[in-house]
Design a protein around this nucleic acid. Structure first.
Length: 289
DNA sequence: ACACGCTCCTGAACGC
DNA sequence: TGCGTTCAGGAGCGTG
C-alpha cells in the first residue's frame, strides 16, 4: 500500500533512470486509470526532458522541459518498474501494464496497476500548488513543519478520533493506514481518542511525542525501502522490508512487543479501516465531557 | 464546516 | 474441486 515511504522509495528508484532523460515514446494502453488520462497525454510527453523528479505527500511530480508537471499517484496497487537494455530480452507488457515510458537513455519505465486506483495528470508548473491534486494537502511530515505545536493547532476543535485525523490528508499529508497505526502505538496514544484532546495545553508532551513518532516511523520506513504487503514492490521489482518492523499493524491477537507487555494486539474498525493497537500501551486518555 | 459512509477496482484468502 | 463471498485501502464525493 503506497504511503509516503513507499512513494519516496519509488521516487529514489526512478530518479536516476528518469532525471535528465527525454521521453522518446509513450504508450498509453487504456483510456483511463482511476480518471481518464488528460487529452493528448502521450503527445504532450514525447520529446520533453524530465528536469527533476520530486515528491509531495503520496504524489510523484516530474518537472518537464515543456513547463508542465507530470503528476502521478500510485493509488493502491500502482507500481513503476524499470527495464534497462542490459536486462536482456524485452518482456512484452502484461495485462495490467497501462503506461510504457521509453526514454532517450534506453530505459523503459512501466506503470503497472491491477486495481487502477492510481492516476496520471499534466499540470502547468505555475499552477501546480493550486491544482486540484495538491491544493488541499496538509503539511509534509518530513519537511520540518511537523512539531507538537503544529499538531495541536491542526487538531484544535477536531471531534474525529486520532486515527481519522491522521489519515486526513488535509492536515498531515502522506500517512496511510499502516503508518498511522504504527505512529499511534509508538506515541502511546489510543486511536479512538478525540484529536481535539491533544490540543489541550496539558497535552503538549503527548502532541510532541506523536510528532516525533510520525517522523521516526516514516524515516525508518524510507530507510528500509518501504513496506511490502500485497502489491508494493520497488522499481527493481524487489521488496521493501519495513513490514518486518511493524509493531502492531496486522498483528491482531499476537503479543504486544513493548518490553514487559505482551498484551494481545487488538483490531477495531474505524471509518471502514482496520486499526491495530495495544489496549495496554495505548490506554484511552481520561476525556472529561 | 465538519464527520461519516459509500464507491471505484482486482486478486488473494476463506468458507461451504 | 469449485464457486461465491469477504477483505484490503487512497481519496473523491455525496449526505446529514
Amino acid at each position: 500500500m503506497p504511503e509516503l515511504p513507499e512513494v519516496e522509495t519509488v521516487r529514489r528508484g526512478l530518479e536516476p533512470a528518469m532525471a535528465g532523460a527525454t521521453f522518446v515514446r509513450v504508450e498509453v494502453r487504456r483510456a483511463d486509470l482511476r480518471f481518464p488520462f488528460p487529452r493528448h497525454f502521450a503527445g504532450r510527453l514525447q520529446g520533453q526532458r524530465i528536469d527533476a523528479l520530486n515528491r509531495r505527500a503520496k504524489y510523484l511530480l516530474a518537472d518537464l522541459s515543456s513547463g508542465d508537471v507530470l503528476v502521478m499517484h500510485l493509488g493502491m496497487s500502482g507500481q513503476f518498474l524499470i527495464r534497462r537494455p542490459e536486462d536482456g530480452t524485452a518482456m512484452p507488457p502484461e495485462t495490467h501494464d497501462h503506461v510504457v515510458f521509453m526514454l532517450s537513455n534506453g530505459v523503459t519505465v512501466l506503470y503497472r496497476d491491477p486495481r487502477r486506483f492510481g492516476f496520471m495528470d499534466l499540470v502547468p508548473q505555475n499552477e501546480l500548488v493550486m491544482s486540484r491534486h495538491l491544493v488541499r494537502l496538509g503539511i509534509e511530515p518530513l519537511g520540518g513543519e511537523l512539531t507538537g505545536e503544529t499538531l495541536m493547532a491542526l487538531f484544535t476543535g477536531k471531534r474525529a478520533p486520532l486515527k481519522a485525523a491522521l489519515l486526513d490528508q488535509r492536515l498531515v499529508a502522506g500517512l496511510g493506514n499502516i503508518y498511522v497505526c504504527e505512529a499511534l502505538f509508538r506515541a502511546g496514544l489510543n486511536p479512538e481518542t478525540e484529536a481535539g484532546f491533544l490540543a489541550k495545553p496539558d497535552m503538549r508532551a503527548k502532541a510532541q511525542a506523536l510528532a516525533t513518532a510520525i517522523r521516526d516511523v516514516l524515516t525508518e520506513a524510507v530507510a528500509a525501502g518501504g513496506s511490502s504487503l500485497k502489491d508494493y514492490v520497488k522499481t527493481d521489482g524487489t521488496l521493501g522490508y519495513f513490514q518486518h518492523a511493524f509493531r502492531v499493524y496486522g498483528r491482531e491477537k499476537e503479543p504486544c512487543l513493548a518490553p514487559d507487555c505482551g498484551e494481545p494486539v487488538r483490531r477495531l474498525v474505524q471509518a471502514g479501516r482496520s486499526t491495530f493497537y495495544c489496549p495496554r500501551c495505548q490506554k484511552p486518555e481520561r476525556q472529561e465531557a
